[in-house]
C-alpha cells in the first residue's frame, strides 16, 4: 500500500506530462470520472461542504483502521479536485491524513485553487477530510 506522499508524488508526475493549463484541467476532469462516488443516501446537508459555489459532498467510513472517502460534486472541475484529494487521502490511517501536507496541489499547477477566498472551497475540502480524520482517530483511541 502506497503512502500519502507516494501517491502525491505520483499525481505530481502525472501532471508534469502536460505543458499547459488546458491539458492539466482536462486531466483533472478525467480524474473526476474515477472518483469513488458517494451513495445517494449520504448526500445530506451534514456531508455538504460549506464555502463552495458548487455542491460537494464527502462521506467517510472506517475500514481496518483506515479511512475510506467517497464524494461527489455537481460541477465537474470541483469533482476533479475532490477526486485528486480522495485519491491521495483515502485508504490511509487517520494519523497519516492529519500529518500530510498539501504542497502537491501547488506542484500540479493548481496553486490558485489553494487560496482560502477561492469560491471552490478546496481549502474547506482539505479541512473536512482532516476533520473526519480527527473524529475517527478519537474512535480508535
Amino acid at each position: 500500500m502506497s503512502t500519502i506522499k507516494e501517491i502525491q508524488d505520483e499525481i505530481v508526475e502525472e501532471f508534469e506530462l502536460f505543458d499547459d493549463w488546458m491539458q492539466r484541467y482536462e486531466h483533472m476532469i478525467e480524474l473526476g470520472k474515477s472518483l469513488p462516488l458517494i451513495e445517494e443516501k449520504y448526500k445530506t446537508e451534514e456531508n455538504l461542504i460549506k464555502g463552495c459555489q458548487s455542491k460537494v459532498w464527502v462521506h467517510a467510513e472506517m475500514e481496518d483502521e483506515k479511512l475510506v472517502f467517497t464524494a461527489d460534486s455537481d460541477a465537474i472541475i470541483t469533482k476533479g479536485i475532490i477526486a485528486i484529494l480522495v485519491r491521495a487521502y483515502s485508504n490511509q490511517h487517520p494519523n497519516d491524513i492529519l500529518e500530510a501536507d498539501n504542497k502537491f496541489i501547488d506542484e500540479i499547477g493548481l496553486k490558485e485553487h489553494l487560496s482560502p477566498t477561492r469560491a471552490n472551497g478546496l481549502v474547506s475540502m482539505i479541512k473536512q477530510l482532516k476533520m473526519y480524520a480527527i473524529a475517527y482517530k478519537t474512535q480508535l483511541n
Partner: peptide
Amino acid sequence: EIHPYDIGTI
C-alpha cells in the same frame, strides 16, 4: 447541464 462554476473557471 454544465455547471456555471465550471464555465467561469475555464
